Measured scan of single mutants.
Amino acid sequence: NQASVVANQLIPINTALTLVMMRSEVVTPVGIPAEDIPRLVGMQVNRAVPLGTTLMPDMVKGYA
């Protein structure tokens, strides 16, 4: 099963992502693939992302 990117903490709206904010986990539904974590660093979320939430492509500005 493919691992997805999951929020390791509450990520406030418009926050630029850092490695410490994300972890990989096998979840359903599948979100952004864990191998894209390096690409996500520095990108901003367009909404608040609660701890444990799977990051979906539409949550990250410029990802989709």
Rank of each mutant, 00 (worst) to 15 (best):
N14T: 07
T18Y: 03
T53Q: 13
A7T: 04
V41M: 08
T28E: 12
S24H: 13
P50G: 11
L40K: 01
T15P: 01
V26A: 08
V60E: 01
R39I: 04
I32M: 07
A7M: 06
N46G: 07
L51C: 02
M59W: 09
M56W: 11
I13N: 08
P57S: 03
P38F: 15
L10Y: 04
L55R: 00
V5D: 00
T15R: 06
L55I: 11
I37Q: 06
R23W: 05
L55W: 01
M43S: 10
P38S: 04
D36G: 11
E35Y: 10
P33I: 10
E25D: 13
N46W: 05
Q44Y: 12
V45N: 05
M21I: 07
N46K: 07
P38M: 08
A16M: 15
S4Q: 04
D58R: 04
A16H: 11
L40M: 15
I32K: 00
M56F: 04
N46S: 15
R23Q: 09
M59A: 11
N8K: 10
I11D: 00
M56N: 08
I11R: 00
P29M: 04
S4R: 03
A16C: 03
V30D: 05
T18K: 12
A3R: 10
I32F: 03
V6K: 09
I32A: 03
G52M: 12
V27P: 03
V27W: 03
T53F: 03
L55K: 00
R47N: 05
L51K: 13
Y63A: 15
L17W: 00
A7P: 02
P50C: 02
A34C: 02
V41W: 07
G62C: 02
T54V: 11
Q9E: 12
P50W: 15
R23M: 06
D58C: 02
A64K: 02
D36Q: 08
A48E: 15
T54L: 10
P38L: 10
P38Y: 15
V30I: 14
P33V: 13
L55Q: 00
V45G: 02
T28F: 05
Q9K: 05
M21H: 04
V5W: 01
M43R: 09
M22Y: 02
M22C: 02
A48T: 08
K61R: 12
V45W: 00
V27D: 03
M43G: 03
P50A: 15
N14R: 06
V20H: 08
V26W: 15
M43D: 14
V5C: 02
Q2L: 11
L40T: 03
Q9C: 02
N8W: 10
Q2K: 10
S4E: 00
T15A: 08
A16I: 03
S4L: 01
D36V: 09
P12L: 14
G52F: 14
G62L: 13
I13P: 05
D36N: 04
V20M: 04
L40N: 01
N1F: 05
V5K: 00
N8F: 11
Q9H: 14
V20I: 11
V49N: 01
K61T: 14
L19E: 05
V6F: 04
I32Q: 01
V6Q: 14
E25Q: 14
L17Q: 00
V5Q: 02
V26F: 02
A64P: 09
A3I: 14
V26L: 07
L55N: 00
M56G: 12
I11H: 00
G52D: 06
P38R: 13
V30G: 03
E35L: 06
N8V: 15
E35F: 07
L55Y: 01
P33C: 02
P57T: 08
M21D: 12
A16V: 07
T28Q: 11
S4A: 13
M56P: 01
I11W: 01
N14Y: 12
M59K: 03
L51T: 15
A3W: 12
M22S: 01
